[in-house]
């Protein structure tokens, strides 16, 4: 079993279309989807992100980092939220992603395996420190 992050990504266009939908319906559809994953015992974590226009971007392209407000002009896709599922295979993560109540142009889910401690050399002092931090912070 491995953990996979299902990353919700969308275009500006798809996002706008999403906003036209009935909010209670959107919540209900997402709720049913989340509940299905909880009932199947696979959902480990998940968060949704607020509007990108409320955020900021730090760009490291030039020597001094450049900060801009809101969605960055060149970004074609917005990162809107994520789920983490604990499943037997990448294919299973993909099948869960396919069940998400999303539609519209440019809306996507990217599936990425979450690295575990086992993916790093255990004798590295920073990896050992990280394990200790995780303990302090109570994160996985």
């Amino acid at each position: 079993m491995s953990k996979y992050m299902l990353i919700m990504r969308g275009s500006e266009e798809g996002y706008e279309k999403f906003e036209e939908m009935d909010f209670t319906e959107v919540i209900a559809a997402m709720g049913r989807y989340n509940e299905e994953m909880v009932n199947a015992g696979v959902l480990v974590a998940g968060e949704g992100l607020s509007d990108a226009s409320e955020g900021a971007v730090v760009d490291f392209s030039s020597e001094t980092p450049v900060v801009t407000d809101g969605p960055y002009g060149e970004v074609k896709e917005l990162f809107n939220g994520f789920w983490i599922v604990d499943v037997a295979s990448k294919e299973e993560a993909v099948e869960w992603a396919k069940k998400a109540p999303l539609s519209g142009p440019g809306n996507k889910i990217e599936i990425r395996r979450v690295n575990g401690v086992e993916d790093f050399p255990q004798d590295n002092e920073w990896i050992q420190k990280e394990t200790a931090w995780r303990k302090e912070l109570g994160t996985e």
């Binding site: 079993m1 909880v38 604990d86 037997a88």
Partner: peptide
């Protein structure tokens, strides 16, 4: 190989979560 015995332990946890909801 793909279904390791360690995965059985994970599967037992998943099925117990399913039962917990029911």
């Amino acid at each position: 190989d793909s279904w390791m015995r360690a995965d059985l332990a994970r599967e037992a946890i998943r099925l117990t979560r399913v039962l917990m909801r029911l």
